[in-house]
Amino acid sequence: MGLFDRLMGRDLPERRDGRRIYFRLLEQARDPAFFGSGRFADDYDGRIDLISLHMAVMMERLRADGEDGKLLSQALFDEMKDDFEIALREEGIGDTGVKKRIKPMINFFYERAKAYTDALNAESPQKAMADVLMIEPDPDAPTSFELRVADYALEWLSSLRNLSMAQITQARFVFPEV
């Protein structure tokens, strides 16, 4: 499935919806407000970390929609993976290099998405999320930016829970201020 299916003209509705949502999340994850001193690094890790945060929040919301949510979550993941592969190919990396490089990228995504999901479901989600973000290593005190991003993620998840699946599939969601 994925890239091959699109090239062959097979485009499932959940893939179209996943693509629409993914590119909306990707656009938001590139917001300059997330980057800078004491914020996310504007590099490979920082950008994947931000897309992981947005994907984790969206996938957490989609879990509430049973099988439909599961299908859309998978389509969303497939879009991200295809996007990673396209980016590597645009850098001039061949098949063998893509296979070697995509695996660490996906593993990094899984690691961060799990940490974010666990934080969203923690007893004290704001503190747990700020701890996961930990941009400036100080385990005793999250920075104001880490707390702001934690609040951002929790506020966005709360607003997503008020939307129907139809609104989500049309990417009719609003991001809070960073």
Results as ranks from 00 to 15, higher is better:
residue 66 G to M: 09
residue 63 R to S: 09
residue 114 K to R: 14
residue 102 I to L: 14
residue 114 K to T: 10
residue 70 K to I: 04
residue 149 V to Y: 10
residue 65 D to H: 14
residue 56 A to T: 07
residue 22 Y to Q: 04
residue 3 L to D: 08
residue 40 F to L: 04
residue 175 F to T: 03
residue 127 K to G: 00
residue 51 I to W: 00
residue 23 F to Q: 05
residue 93 I to T: 03
residue 86 I to R: 15
residue 43 D to I: 04
residue 45 D to G: 08
residue 23 F to V: 02
residue 52 S to E: 00
residue 97 G to W: 06
residue 168 I to Q: 10
residue 165 M to E: 08
residue 24 R to C: 06
residue 174 V to L: 14
residue 63 R to D: 15
residue 143 T to S: 13
residue 102 I to K: 05
residue 34 F to W: 05
residue 101 R to K: 15
residue 98 V to A: 07
residue 105 M to G: 07
residue 149 V to G: 02
residue 113 A to N: 01
residue 83 D to I: 07
residue 76 L to A: 05
residue 130 A to H: 01
residue 86 I to P: 04
residue 8 M to V: 09
residue 157 L to Y: 10
residue 126 Q to R: 15
residue 40 F to I: 02
residue 19 R to E: 12
residue 93 I to R: 08
residue 68 D to I: 11
residue 87 A to T: 11
residue 73 S to G: 11
residue 169 T to I: 13
residue 99 K to W: 14
residue 30 R to G: 04
residue 151 D to A: 15
residue 21 I to H: 00
residue 167 Q to Y: 11
residue 24 R to Q: 11
residue 58 M to S: 02
residue 49 D to W: 01
residue 7 L to W: 09
residue 19 R to Q: 14
residue 20 R to A: 01
residue 6 R to D: 05
residue 97 G to S: 04
residue 79 E to S: 12
residue 139 P to H: 08
residue 118 D to E: 15
residue 79 E to Y: 06
residue 21 I to M: 01
residue 52 S to F: 06
residue 177 E to M: 15
residue 70 K to S: 08
residue 147 L to K: 15
residue 7 L to E: 00
residue 132 V to N: 03
residue 41 A to I: 10
residue 24 R to D: 07
residue 1 M to N: 07
residue 79 E to D: 08
residue 96 T to N: 06
residue 73 S to T: 04
residue 32 P to E: 06
residue 43 D to E: 08
residue 36 G to N: 05
residue 58 M to L: 06
residue 34 F to T: 06
residue 136 E to K: 13
residue 134 M to E: 08
residue 8 M to A: 14
residue 112 R to M: 08
residue 150 A to V: 08
residue 56 A to V: 07
residue 152 Y to K: 10
residue 113 A to T: 05
residue 89 R to C: 06
residue 81 K to N: 07
residue 46 G to V: 03
residue 172 R to W: 15
residue 119 A to T: 04
residue 51 I to Y: 01
residue 37 S to L: 15
residue 19 R to T: 13
residue 82 D to M: 05
residue 16 R to V: 08
residue 72 L to H: 04
residue 85 E to G: 08
residue 149 V to P: 01
residue 176 P to M: 03
residue 40 F to R: 04
residue 12 L to E: 12
residue 30 R to N: 12
residue 11 D to P: 04
residue 27 E to W: 14
residue 133 L to T: 02
residue 98 V to H: 08
residue 64 A to N: 09
residue 55 M to D: 00
residue 12 L to S: 14
residue 75 A to V: 06
residue 125 P to T: 03
residue 16 R to W: 09
residue 5 D to T: 11
residue 84 F to S: 01
residue 162 N to R: 14
residue 68 D to Y: 10
residue 29 A to S: 13
residue 58 M to Y: 03
residue 49 D to L: 08
residue 156 W to A: 06
residue 130 A to T: 02
residue 137 P to L: 03
residue 160 L to I: 09
residue 148 R to I: 11
residue 34 F to D: 00
residue 51 I to V: 11
residue 68 D to S: 14
residue 74 Q to W: 05
residue 79 E to T: 10
residue 81 K to V: 11
residue 68 D to P: 07
residue 127 K to E: 12
residue 159 S to P: 03
residue 167 Q to E: 15
residue 163 L to P: 04
residue 173 F to C: 06
residue 57 V to K: 04
residue 71 L to S: 11
residue 11 D to E: 13
residue 157 L to P: 05
residue 66 G to F: 03
residue 168 I to M: 15
residue 130 A to P: 02
residue 46 G to P: 00
residue 96 T to R: 14
residue 10 R to Y: 15
residue 56 A to M: 05
residue 110 Y to L: 11
residue 148 R to D: 13
residue 10 R to Q: 10
